[in-house]
């Protein structure tokens, strides 16, 4: 009995040592890979800074423009920077540059990082904030924050936002490059290897038409999310404190937007309270047509041209 126990103990010791060696070897290899990945990705990010099409990296670290469009993918597809710039510059005799920073799923934490990062380099004259009628209801889209993880160590505003919004565990994991660049490495790498000029000034032209559609009422009865309201106010304050002229705009959608929803009313109230020009194209009959939409949420290029012209003329009235 004692013999077998001795054998068992000795086997266990051998097994533990072997397992421990394998475990440490794999951990060391992973650590080395992680360091190399971080180095390569930082190099690529740096090289990509000159490229406008490079989305978030360009917005956070290089973009400088006099007129900035902030918003989600709707903003990116609906506002043509070139048209806004031409319209304003020809009427006012200025040489304002315009950049569309719209990005998929993005929300106030993202707008905050973009505005602050832009202002660190150059304070814009005008900011057009494209909001969805339901932006202030429902939770903040936390999964969208992962787009910003690669810039955690290089951008103090991103660090601030991620530290505020992510859990302790995520903050620990942020020390690993593989976690930070998870999924995002592909965009950085592909725009480095295959640069494209498809997206001038951040605008993504969409084609196609939405044929099979039905305009259904969008009833959003959810209460206003206090956190989103606070973030909205924070964005307004930043603009006011820096003498930036802020405009709030609501894009059209292929659905009927309920203007009595608490979230919509709150946007209107906030704009009134802070004296912000507010343009609402959500139920604009000239725009809410299938042939002007790529899908129910995004205008095609033809639709974007009409909307941008409307926005530009409104901007000129307010300037």
């Amino acid at each position: 009995m004692e013999d077998s126990l001795y054998i068992s103990n000795s086997n266990m010791k051998k097994s533990s040592t072997k397992i421990l060696i394998c475990f440490i070897t794999i951990l060391l290899c992973l650590y080395c890979f992680d360091c190399i990945l971080g180095y390569v990705m930082r190099y690529i990010s740096q090289r990509n800074l000159e490229k406008e099409h490079c989305g978030l990296n360009y917005c956070l670290n290089a973009a400088t423009a006099d007129i900035i469009i902030l918003g989600s993918s709707s903003a990116r597809a609906n506002y043509i920077p070139q048209l806004i710039g031409d319209s304003i510059n020809s009427h006012l005799g200025t040489k304002y540059s315009v950049y569309n920073t719209g990005n998929t799923y993005q929300d106030f934490p993202y707008f905050y990082c973009e505005m602050k990062s832009l202002m660190d380099r150059k304070i814009p004259k005008i900011v057009i904030l494209d909001l969805q009628p339901w932006t202030l209801s429902g939770p903040t889209n936390m999964s969208a924050l992962k787009f910003m993880r690669p810039y955690y160590n290089t951008n103090s505003h991103v660090k601030e936002v991620l530290d505020d919004n992510e859990t302790f565990l995520h903050r620990v994991l942020m020390n690993f490059e593989m976690y930070k660049y998870n999924e995002e490495f592909f965009d950085l790498l592909s725009s480095y290897l295959y640069p494209t000029t498809k997206y001038p000034m951040g605008f993504w032209a969409l084609d196609g038409e939405e044929k099979d559609y039905e305009i259904i009422p969008e009833n959003d009865n959810r209460e206003v999310n206090p956190l989103s309201k606070q973030e909205f106010e924070k964005t307004i304050q930043i603009a006011h404190n820096n003498n930036v002229k802020l405009f709030v705009s609501i894009s059209p959608y292929l659905r009927y937007i309920d203007r009595n929803s608490p979230a919509y009313k709150e946007i209107v109230n906030m704009c009134k309270k802070y004296n912000i020009p507010f343009f609402d194209y959500s139920n604009d009959l000239e725009l809410v047509k299938g042939e002007l939409f790529h899908d129910t949420m995004h205008l095609n290029k033809k639709g974007a041209t009409i909307l941008t012209k409307k926005v530009s003329s409104e901007l000129l009235k307010s300037l």
Partner: peptide, 19 residues
């Protein structure tokens, strides 16, 4: 075996949906 495990772990951490 170790290289296979190492490569699989890289796929998990770098390309997997960690959320």
């Amino acid at each position: 075996r170790l290289i296979s495990i190492f490569l699989l772990l890289i796929c998990v951490f770098l390309c997997g949906n960690l959320d």
